[in-house]
Write a protein that binds this DNA or RNA. Structure first.
Length: 425
RNA sequence: GGAGGGGUGGCAGAGUGGUUGAAUGCGGCGGUCUUGAAAACCGUUGUGGGUUAUGCUCACCGGGGGUUCGAAUCCCUCCCCCUCCGCCA
């Protein structure tokens, strides 16, 4: 959510950003509702001031034994007017808020303007030293490998739950678990994050706080009986840990890392890039969340990105980094890097992580503040998060990059102490 | 699920329907004292909104609604927390 005052004072900037982000926010309606609201407020507050003043006089008159009937009669009508105007204010406020929460965050000035993913800017490409782009055999894709080695079972997953719910079997399950443990430990030990194991079902306020609601409500699994949502990412519960709180400056930067399964309905996105792990309804992810001082958030974004990349360096998985253009940037983000890992079988890059700075957009929605040490004033924190990383896409890259000509898969060195075996097949 | 108790400022904790935005304590800030610090003492200290703005003003005591000229205080409703009972991996 943007600051209403900012929109009032910079409507052109906001209009431009809504357009660049391919969003639909109605800035003019907001300006007009804001104007209505302020003029109504002035009117009703004048009446309330009068009411408050008289309310102090009445007990005095009564105490003095004087008659207050005239004042009481006047107040009766004043009170009715206030009630009517308050209702009008409430309606205008509701409408205003409805529009306000649909205005996307402003892209940072360093974000390239663009219409679609085609306009994203590649900022880095990395290959391990011994990497051979051209293998001397035709690599199997992760589906073929999964079936041959009996480590992934998409058919049975479909039987149990539906398409997009993979079953990990045997060494596949162990490898997945190893990957999660490895990544979590890495962030805790090497990067100083505090581990969080969050609830997987969250309430409406939490979903609103991080911005999934209302825009993406259709993409969320929803438990109607209890008004709870299955989390699409651990970002939601972890960021909301400090909703409605005031942190002290010494607590910053807050650095949390947590593993969770992620649930996404992916409504309306079937067909395209949807086979196997490329699009699933449930997947595992280690998420990093930071809450930082506003003046440090862009530094922290670079650090966050590097924290995620370090994993790929150790696992020796080729990757590239994209700086998302305005048109591909998510609703709440001000700046975002995507990390994509290489799939030799698909011969393309697969998104394995997004690292974003939300500035104070989420913090304003969720009311997460900190108290400045220097003047004791409160201010919204900046929130950031990044996958570190999503296992499903990473698993594709590991299986395909580490396969041998015989169709076996070597377990990457750093994962071996977690799996207890060195090769699958 | 049943029965009871409770949600008040950064924290703890008072609060007969009428100068209560809210006692008191802690904490914070400023000062006196001191070589310095502590202690003691004095003062000060919430957030958000509107405004033709050294000011004036409105709202906020878990959320929402109601009664009233006037609500932290009374009523309804929802949420959350605690205790006991029941159920349970």
């Amino acid at each position: 959510m943007l600051d209403l005052k900012f929109i009032r004072e910079n409507p052109e900037i906001v209009r431009k950003s809504v357009e660049n982000k391919n969003e639909k926010g109605n800035v003019d309606e907001i300006l007009s509702l804001d104007k209505d609201r302020r003029s109504l407020l002035q009117e009703v507050e004048e009446l309330k001031a009068r009411r408050n003043q008289v309310s102090k006089e009445i007990p005095k008159l009564k105490k003095a034994g004087e008659n207050a009937d005239d004042l009481l009669a006047e107040m009766k009508t004043v009170s009715d007017d206030i009630k009517r105007l308050d209702e009008e204010v409430r309606q205008v406020n509701d409408k205003l808020r409805l529009h306000l929460i649909r205005i996307p965050n402003l892209p940072h000035e360093s974000v390239p303007v663009g219409k679609s993913a085609d306009d994203n800017v590649e900022t880095k490409v990395w290959y391990p030293d011994d990497f051979n782009a051209e293998k001397d055999f035709t690599p199997m894709d992760h589906l073929q490998l999964g079936k041959k080695l009996n480590i992934l079972d998409f058919e049975r997953g479909a039987k149990i739950s539906g398409t997009g719910f993979p079953v990990y079997v045997g060494k596949g399950a162990t490898l997945e678990r190893a990957l999660i443990n490895y990544m979590i430990n890495f962030h805790i030990e090497k990067h100083g994050y505090t581990e969080i194991m969050p609830p997987l079902l969250v309430n409406r306020d939490s979903m609103f706080g991080t911005g999934q609601i209302p825009k993406l409500e259709e993409d969320m699994y929803f438990m109607e009986k209890d008004d709870l949502f299955a989390i699409p990412t651990a970002e939601v519960p972890i960021t909301n840990m400090h909703r409605e709180e005031i942190l002290s400056e010494e607590q910053l930067p807050v650095k949390y890392a947590g593993y969770s399964p992620c649930f996404r309905r992916e409504a309306g996105s079937h067909g395209k890039e949807s086979k196997g792990f490329l699009r699933v309804h449930q997947f595992n992810k280690v998420e990093m969340v930071k809450m930082v001082r506003p003046d440090s958030s862009y530094e922290e974004l670079e650090l966050l990105l590097n924290d995620a990349l370090d994993i790929l360096h150790e696992l020796k998985i080729p990757y590239r980094v994209l700086l998302l253009c305005t048109g591909d940037l998510s609703f709440a983000a001000a700046k975002c890097y995507d990390i994509e890992t290489w799939s030799p079988a698909e011969k393309k890059w697969l998104e394995a992580s997004s690292c974003s700075n939300f500035e104070d957009f989420q913090a304003r929605r969720a009311n997460i503040r900190y108290r400045r040490a220097e003047d004791k004033k409160t201010e919204f924190v900046h929130t950031l998060n990044g996958s570190g990383l999503a296992t499903s896409r990473l698993m594709v890259s590991i299986l395909e990059n580490y396969q041998t000509p015989e169709g076996k898969v070597i377990v990457p060195k750093p994962l071996q102490k977690y799996t207890g075996f060195e090769i699958i097949g």
